[in-house]
């Protein structure tokens, strides 16, 4: 029983940065921008978040710095694709290379100082039990004894879900992502909507990067803290079917896959009949999230539904005078 609870606890913990990355990318895509730069934005957020936390010792400053740097990356993306009409795929990929490179450059300088987060900040990040709720058996341990950034990730995802689905502003965002010409004809500011949401989404991705640097490094700086999780977030958007609520479940599943490959021996030790699992090469488990994503794509394209699919103008630039 303990093995399972620990496993799920770790799944939530490792799913949270994916949840942030995915939520950010969903907001961006819903407004019609396909930003493939999540990996780079998370790398930038990781550095900015860690550096601000290291210098100020304040968690709020760390989150703010990561958000602002992520939003700045979103601004670059929006400027290139909305104002200059650059190809979105190319811009996103370039942003990944740029972001990862810049973060590595400064990370290399930083690592020479052998940085360590302050003890107070480390203690704050190690975990916060929510009064009463954490006393609930099983659930209390899995969901309500996590670190403070996990709670933040869940709150952001829920707010993003409400924003997109139930608010007037969210309706405008969806309209712009589906059919910018129709939105424009109704008097919605298409360019502004895309700018704001690319920045908002980028900022949230940035916090996802900060999570990886602050939590997974246990106080030390790691140049490779992001290492592919940005890409998994992009895949997770498809799994979540462009809904932040879907991302809550999706990030848990993907987090579980991630933990599974590390803890497969623990699990086999507890459940000897699963012994065959440890014989499968680890690479198989790291591949699983992408196989599942491919399956979701296949299933959703067979269903031919109108909801839960990519916004129809996602990835396509809008130019009013096009005929």
């Amino acid at each position: 029983m303990n093995t399972i609870i620990n496993f799920l606890f770790a799944a939530v913990k490792n799913g949270a940065p994916l949840l942030l990355g995915t939520t950010g990318e969903i907001i961006t895509e819903k407004s019609g921008s396909l930003n493939l730069g999540v990996e780079g934005i998370m790398a930038l957020g990781a550095f900015a978040g860690y550096y601000a936390g290291y210098k100020t010792g304040s968690l709020i400053m760390a989150i703010l710095a990561a958000f602002l740097v992520g939003a700045l990356a979103g601004l670059i993306f929006a400027f290139l694709t909305v104002t200059l009409q650059a190809n979105q795929n190319v811009t996103g990929l370039t942003l990944t290379i740029f972001g990862s490179g810049v973060a590595l450059f400064f990370g290399e300088i930083l690592i020479k100082q052998r940085p360590k987060l302050s003890a107070a900040l480390n203690a704050l990040l190690s975990g916060t039990e929510i009064p009463l709720l954490s006393k609930i058996p099983v659930i209390g341990r899995i969901l309500f004894s996590q670190n403070i950034l996990v709670y933040l990730a869940i709150i952001i995802a829920v707010l993003a879900g409400i924003y997109l689905k139930y608010t007037r502003l969210g309706l405008k965002v969806r309209a712009v992502g589906e059919n910018p010409a129709a939105a424009d004809a109704s008097g919605i500011k298409v360019a502004l909507t895309r700018y704001v949401n690319a920045m908002l989404g980028g900022g949230i991705c940035g916090i996802g990067g900060a999570y990886l640097a602050l939590i997974n490094g246990r106080g030390d700086w790691d140049n490779n803290s992001v290492s592919g999780q940005g890409w998994i977030s992009v895949a997770l958007v498809i799994f979540a079917r462009w809904s932040p609520f879907g991302a809550l479940l999706g990030s848990l599943v993907f987090g579980a896959f991630y933990v599974f490959q590390i803890r497969v021996n623990d699990i086999v030790a507890t459940f000897p009949f699963l012994g065959f699992l440890s014989k499968i090469p680890n690479a198989f488990y790291s591949m699983l999230p992408f196989v599942i994503t491919a399956l979701v794509l296949v299933i959703s394209s067979v269903q031919k539904k109108k909801v839960g699919v990519q916004p129809s103008s996602c990835g396509i630039n809008y130019y009013r005078e096009d005929r």
Partner: peptide
């Protein structure tokens, strides 16, 4: 027509 296919009629109106 400049309408958003995946939205309801009312939402196509109130969006603007």
């Amino acid at each position: 027509f400049k309408l958003v296919e995946v939205l309801t009629a009312a939402d196509n109106i109130v969006m603007g």
